[in-house]
């Protein structure tokens, strides 16, 4: 199927894009890599009158070092993030999660910012961004604001980005030297996870200095496994701490599994992810 008719703009600066958004309001939809939006338009689940393509805005692409953080431009394709040496050195967890996201063709087109703005609870980048305490730089008519990951994800497919705003970049605090692992449980190849666990660890097995754990698809937004993190920081053993991974979660029941099954998965995958992240 093909999308309904729409008009199309391809601005070359963020300012132009914002003024197009201001003019067209909620009749407009932003197009990044199109890897989630185009399927939605083709299935006619959405029918915007105007599509504003960010693909020609060079300033939204690329990854840079900014002191205690690395900054990932919203329009940087997954395949570039996956190969970037800064990401690998300072945010290994993102490197690991991108490796297993979708398939090669999708990774060539889909973007880092697009995936996060899409806010699919089964998306693979939300939990790593949350675990790494990333912050989101959002540009709007009144200027730029920065939103912490804990406030960025609002609900199913809903973020803090307003209708007249766009995500320009994501700041990821450096976690240099931290081990990391993304444990993704899928039914078939190149699919969204039924549940996934993103773990990053300072120190090694037996002498953990710190640990951060994000959960994918255990609720309407990415979540932190806080109880497990606290237990591990307090010196608890992993097998016991992992049993707390589903605390304060609200997993869905769907074709791929019941909520109770997802709770079970969260515990098992947390144990595996932390073990792998700490070099076990």
């Amino acid at each position: 199927m093909i999308p309904t008719q729409f008009d199309y703009l391809a601005p070359t600066t963020v300012e132009e894009a914002l003024s197009a958004l201001a003019t067209h309001g909620d009749d407009a939809k932003i197009l990044a890599g199109g890897q989630s939006l185009l399927p939605v338009l083709r299935m006619r689940l959405n029918a915007p009158e105007m599509v504003i393509d960010l693909g020609r805005i060079e300033s939204l692409r690329g990854i840079r070092d900014d002191g205690d953080a690395i900054v990932i431009g919203a329009m940087t394709p997954h395949s570039v993030v996956g190969k970037d040496p800064l990401v690998k050195e300072h945010a290994l967890l993102i490197h690991k999660a991108v490796e297993h996201l979708a398939d090669e063709q999708i990774r060539h087109r889909g973007t880092f910012g697009g995936a996060l703005a899409h806010a699919d609870p089964a998306g693979d980048l939300g939990a790593p961004a949350l675990a790494l305490d990333a912050s989101f730089v959002i540009a709007g008519p009144g200027g730029t604001r920065t939103v912490p990951a804990a406030e960025f994800f609002v609900d199913l497919f809903e973020t803090a980005i307003g209708e007249d705003e766009l995500l320009t970049e994501v700041r990821v605090p450096k976690h240099t030297g931290w081990g990391a692992h993304y444990e993704k449980f899928v039914r078939v190849a190149h699919q969204w996870p039924i549940v996934a666990v993103a773990a990053t660890v300072k120190g090694s097995a037996g002498s953990l200095e710190d640990v951060k754990i994000g959960l994918t698809n255990m609720g309407s937004t990415p979540l932190r496994a806080k109880a497990t993190e606290d237990a591990l920081r307090g010196g608890g053993d992993l097998a016991t701490a992992a049993q707390l991974a589903d605390q304060d979660t609200n997993p869905p029941s769907d074709l791929n599994g019941e909520a109770s099954y997802r709770r079970h998965l969260a515990k098992v995958l947390t144990r595996r992810a932390v073990t792998a992240a700490s070099g076990g």
Partner: peptide
């Protein structure tokens, strides 16, 4: 399915998931 894969500026893409204007 990937049946529609072509190269766009040297990398593979699924051409059913790219607009001609892009």
């Amino acid at each position: 399915c990937g049946a529609c894969t072509v190269h766009l500026d040297g990398t593979s893409v699924k051409s059913c998931n790219v607009l001609a204007v892009q």
